[in-house]
Simulated scan of single mutants.
Amino acid sequence: MGVMLTNKNWETPYYAHIGDKDKLGNMWSANLHYLNIPIHIGYMMPVSKKISLFMNAGPYWGVGLFGKYTMTSGDKDTTIAENIFKDYLKRFDCGIGWNRY
Rank of each mutant, 00 (worst) to 15 (best):
N9G: 00
K50H: 13
G42Q: 08
I41A: 15
M4D: 11
T70I: 06
M45V: 14
F54D: 05
C94W: 09
L53W: 15
P46V: 09
S73M: 14
P13I: 04
D22C: 10
A81G: 02
M1G: 04
D20Y: 06
G58N: 12
Y34A: 00
S48P: 13
T12P: 00
L24A: 14
L65S: 04
N9Q: 06
I96F: 15
M55V: 15
M55I: 15
I51M: 14
G58I: 11
H33T: 12
Y15E: 04
N31C: 01
A16E: 02
L24E: 15
S73N: 15
P46D: 12
I37R: 06
F66Y: 13
G95N: 08
I96Q: 04
W61V: 11
G42R: 03
G25I: 08
H40F: 10
N7M: 03
L53A: 11
V63P: 01
L53T: 12
Y101R: 10
G58K: 12
K68F: 00
M27S: 10
M27N: 04
K90Y: 06
D93H: 06
I41E: 07
M4C: 02
N83R: 12
N99L: 03
K21H: 05
N56M: 07
N9P: 00
G2F: 10
I41S: 11
N83P: 08
A30G: 12
E11K: 05
H40R: 14
D22Q: 13
T6G: 05
T6M: 07
L32A: 05
I84K: 01
L53G: 13
N31D: 09
R100C: 04
T6A: 11
G67S: 10
A16K: 01
K8T: 14
M45Y: 14
Y101L: 09
S29A: 12
G2V: 07
D77V: 14
V3M: 07
R91G: 04
M1T: 09
S29N: 02
P38W: 06
D20W: 06
W28I: 03
Y34N: 01
P46H: 11
W28M: 00
H17F: 09
K86D: 04
T72R: 15
I96T: 06
T78E: 10
W61R: 02
F54T: 08
S73L: 11
N26F: 11
T79R: 02
E82H: 10
K90T: 07
V47R: 12
S29W: 00
M44F: 08
M27L: 15
K49D: 13
N7H: 14
D87I: 05
N9H: 03
Y14P: 02
Y34G: 00
K23Q: 13
K68C: 02
Y88A: 11
L32P: 02
E11L: 00
D22P: 03
D87A: 06
W98S: 12
M1C: 07
M44W: 05
I80K: 00
A30Y: 01
L35R: 03
F66M: 12
H33R: 09
I39K: 06
Y43E: 05
S73C: 14
K50L: 14
L35N: 09
I84E: 03
A57M: 13
K21W: 04
W10H: 01
S73A: 15
G97W: 01
N7W: 10
M45A: 14
L32W: 02
I84D: 02
R91Y: 03
K21N: 10
R100P: 00
S73I: 10
K23M: 08
N83E: 06
M45E: 07
G62S: 13
